[in-house]
Design a protein around this nucleic acid. Structure first.
Lengths: 335, 335
DNA sequence: AGGCGACATGACAGCGCTGTCAACACCCCG
DNA sequence: CGGGGTGTTGACAGCGCTGTCATGTCGCCT
């Protein structure tokens, strides 16, 4: 009445449990006829191996763990969705854990999943190199996503942050903007620094000097960004365009614009967000393409699981500038 | 060098593994001094029980499974986030699985998690009563969320769909609207039918007849809703207000409005969505309060895990009308 | 014909826990 | 002072797998 075990399959098929185990794990050196008979018995009994037992017996759980800042951040939600889909195809389950942007909690969550015996881990880390390197386990395959954080011992999949930012700001410069604001907390992630560098590069190559008045690096959440954005837009020599280095910064700017009833400030946000195309004007973004990122991360995780000694990869995927309207606005007062 | 086991703790503390096991599981009849000594040993060795072994030994995994339509739907993403947070506090992990709105896949995913030995399951089901009742396991505690689907054998946590819809439509009626459109696929979920009933009720009590021209029940995704919304808004006797029975329908309407350059159509969407407050005009919604829902669901799940024979609960939480602008627009042409 | 290696299968011992049951020490009561 | 709880602890047998090692069977080469 209870779930069938490997013994039931063994009895039914007439082979030993070890042979059944071999069939399950697609081990070599089993006669194809034997495989067929065992498979038939498995099918007949509707047998499914118990992951806990497989794990205890010596293997890993058919499970991948995903550790991200927060599960309901749209970016990470998409990442999780892709990983979940890929894992399902591979017959694996997905454990999720969030760090809430807390280093201790990040460490705890990673350790917990590692202890649990997951086959692999996808982690969006943060903190300085040392913290992150220490938090990442060496006995479990890990792929780091989105942020490198100086990690060199693990596979990393991220995007061209600097180039993406450069593209965004060049886009604004091409529309004639010369006073372009920047919002983004540099101390938070290395990615933010890259994005600032991209901003700086685009300005410099256009012969525009970076105006410290237009660079706001204190805000982290959108709530924090809002007053700064408000202040920046309200000054007499306000920027005619803004580059928001993250969706959170972008939302702060949008709130400020809404508050000031201004729809004439050009805006490009690094990172797409839900319904950006329905805003007034629709928001131009630098798409980080979370789907491609997660897909690649999963590929690399599988590779690492199969060959723990494979060469360490640092994959940098291109971003995509998506013009929707807000980024194509001409400078105020110009036709 | 390897992870410490219960034997290490036993040796270190001077007790048997069984006593250590008792301490871990907070079993009764253990002297407090013994507990203290064992705890000290656990602390010293940094011991953490192996979930797989606990499971095999006879218990359940310290894990809850969450099965939803899709992981990156903002509503479910929030649900998952809350469950994850609560689970973490309870020392549990969270397995996520999505159904992709496919009955077979729903069944597969639920079975898989159940087999895995999770302690409990939170499921957003769909399909007719029979399908769902069959898909839900009886040997694992389950809490059904968001949609009842006729389930009577499990705890259910949902919201006042009909009342919420009535509130929304009354709100529009109170602003003077008499031609109010409805968008929502009734055949999809029982919740949608409830929302339509709420719509009908609010109209009826205001002495307004339901105009079939203004009721669109074919669309399911926002892509499908878009052309219908477009058509509805473009007719000569177009509605002055629209009640979108789900965020997807709402996005369809918003796209249509954007396309038609119309910001004068009053709109209330059932279900909040990201940055709704930044739209032009900001979108008035009926908040389903996913956080409260998930919180309650987790409470009920814990209750059910502790007492499998507890009375079956059907909890219906109130929704919250959030006026933000779009729902307060007067009918076209009226001051 | 004898022997060796490649293939195919099985016996058995864990993996790290928990459940069952037994053992033992006390305590209360008649 | 003996019987029968009650509280506290431990020995031991699994749970359902996989790893190791042994066993048996051919086919082929010398």
């Amino acid at each position: 009445m209870s779930r069938p075990t490997i013994y039931d399959v063994a009895r039914e098929s007439g082979f030993s449990i070890k042979t059944v185990s071999r069939v399950i794990n697609e081990a070599p050196n089993v006669r194809s006829e034997t495989v067929a008979r065992v498979r038939a018995a498995i099918e007949l009994l509707q047998y499914h191996p118990d992951p806990a037992a497989q794990r205890l017996g010596g293997g890993k759980l058919p499970t991948v763990g995903v550790v991200v800042d927060s599960v309901d951040d749209p970016f990470f939600a998409q990442v999780i969705a892709v990983i979940e889909a890929r894992a399902m195809d591979a017959g694996m389950d997905v454990l999720v854990a969030s760090t809430g942007m807390d280093e201790t909690r990040m460490r705890t969550q990673i350790r917990r999943l590692a202890r649990r015996g997951v086959a692999g881990l996808v982690v969006a880390p943060f903190g300085d190199t040392r913290t992150v390197e220490e938090a990442l386990p060496d006995d479990v395959p890990v792929v780091v996503i989105d942020r490198k954080c100086g990690v060199t011992s693990k596979d990393v999949v991220r995007v061209t942050d600097e180039q993406g930012a450069t593209d965004a700001v060049r886009h604004l410069v091409a529309r004639g903007h010369r006073r372009i604001g920047f919002l983004g907390k540099l101390s938070a992630f290395d990615t933010l620094v890259d994005r600032f560098n991209g901003y700086e590069r685009a300005l410099t190559e256009a012969g525009i000097e970076v105006d410290p008045q237009l660079v706001e690096t204190r805000a982290w959440t959108s709530d924090e960004a809002y007053p700064y954005a408000l202040a920046m837009l309200a000054t007499s020599d306000a920027p005619t365009a803004v580059f928001a280095a993250s969706p959170m910064m972008g939302l702060g700017v949008l709130r400020a614009q809404q508050r000031l009833h201004r729809q004439d400030v050009a805006l490009v946000i690094f990172g797409d967000y839900p319904v950006a195309e329905l805003m007034t004007p629709p928001t131009t973004v630098v798409d980080q393409r979370p789907v491609a990122l997660a897909d690649t991360a999963f590929d690399h995780l599988v590779r690492r699981i199969q060959d723990p000694d494979a060469e360490v990869l640092d994959t940098v995927l291109p971003t995509l500038l998506v013009p929707r309207g807000s980024g194509e606005l001409a400078p105020r007062g110009v036709a």
